[in-house]
């Protein structure tokens, strides 16, 4: 972790209503790295992406991107900063009324007035990079899940961002598509000189490309390190998560009012069925 940090989180707290999601998160994401953010479902991983992208604001704590404090950003400055960010959404989030080509071209058309031939070259370059130049004219409904995600990836990187967020990039894809997406994330990160933050619970695929990982549980970072360090972590929670054990520090049972055996006894006594 010697490299300069692009994103820094300092004691970040966030709650939805009275339900705390993040309770004091500290994190450093070095420039140029692929960083994985892992944890159980509903553990606040997507919330962290939204905080870093500025679509949510923390109740307390600081988030700095390239040394600038996000809380000080007004709406317009935030939009300006987001031009240097890209995000791949869990469900691709392609515009259903536009073709694959127009989806990828969308950010360029909105932000720049480029001659049509220049725009075409830029878009086709990115489509070629994800291997779907041939699908430029198709609508999202005509694409498979894996192809849709690759188009969305091309769209996320069309502005050559310095920071790319991936929200569950492997979920719901067949093994071939998972492999393709993983290698694309790696290749694009190197080619663009970008920094990538990857939210996932797919341990194997994530560790195959990530340089560094954080494990999030109970609103806090419970373990961090390179994939190798994490595998040898002495945290029981980290081991349970990485090993996929059904029971452990994260209990199998959702807390119930009463122990099941006791509940059975009581209901027998009362003559009812639970």
């Amino acid at each position: 972790m010697a490299a300069e940090a692009l994103v820094e989180l300092e004691n970040v707290c966030f709650a939805r209503g009275s339900h705390p999601v993040l309770a004091g998160v500290d994190m450093r994401i070095p420039r140029g790295a692929i960083v994985a953010l892992m944890g159980a479902s509903g553990g606040g991983k997507t919330t962290m992406l939204n905080l870093m992208a500025g679509t949510l604001r923390p109740q307390s704590g600081q988030i700095r991107i390239a040394g600038q404090n996000l809380q000080k950003f007004s709406g317009d400055a935030m939009y300006a900063l987001r031009r240097q960010m890209g995000m791949l959404f869990q469900h691709s989030a392609l515009f259903t009324d536009l073709t694959a080509f127009e989806n990828v071209a969308f950010p360029l058309r909105r932000h720049f007035r480029l001659p049509e031939n220049v725009l075409r070259k830029l878009v086709m370059m990115k489509l070629e990079a994800v291997g779907l130049r041939g699908a430029a004219g198709l609508f999202p409904a005509e694409l498979s899940g894996g192809m849709g995600r690759r188009i969305a990836l091309a769209r996320a990187v069309i502005m050559d961002p310095m920071l790319i967020f991936y929200d569950e990039p492997f979920t719901g894809l067949d093994p071939i598509s998972v492999g393709i997406i993983a290698s694309l994330i790696k290749r694009l990160n190197t080619a663009l000189g970008a920094t990538s933050v990857l939210v996932s619970h797919d341990v194997e695929e994530t560790f195959s490309i990530a340089d560094y990982g954080f494990i999030l549980a109970g609103g806090k970072i419970i373990a961090e390190g390179t994939p190798a360090e994490l595998r040898n972590s002495d945290s029981a929670l980290a081991r349970q998560f990485l090993g996929g054990q059904p029971d452990g520090p994260v209990p199998f049972h959702y807390p119930a009012r009463q122990d099941y055996a006791a509940a059975l006894r009581d209901s027998h006594a009362a003559g009812e069925v639970i």
């Binding site: 959404f89 869990q90 950010p107 502005m159």
Partner: peptide, 18 residues
Amino acid sequence: ATEQLSAMEMMAVNPLAW
């Protein structure tokens, strides 16, 4: 529901305006 509005927000395009 399909995150298209959030995607716009991320592409620095204001969904209210667009």
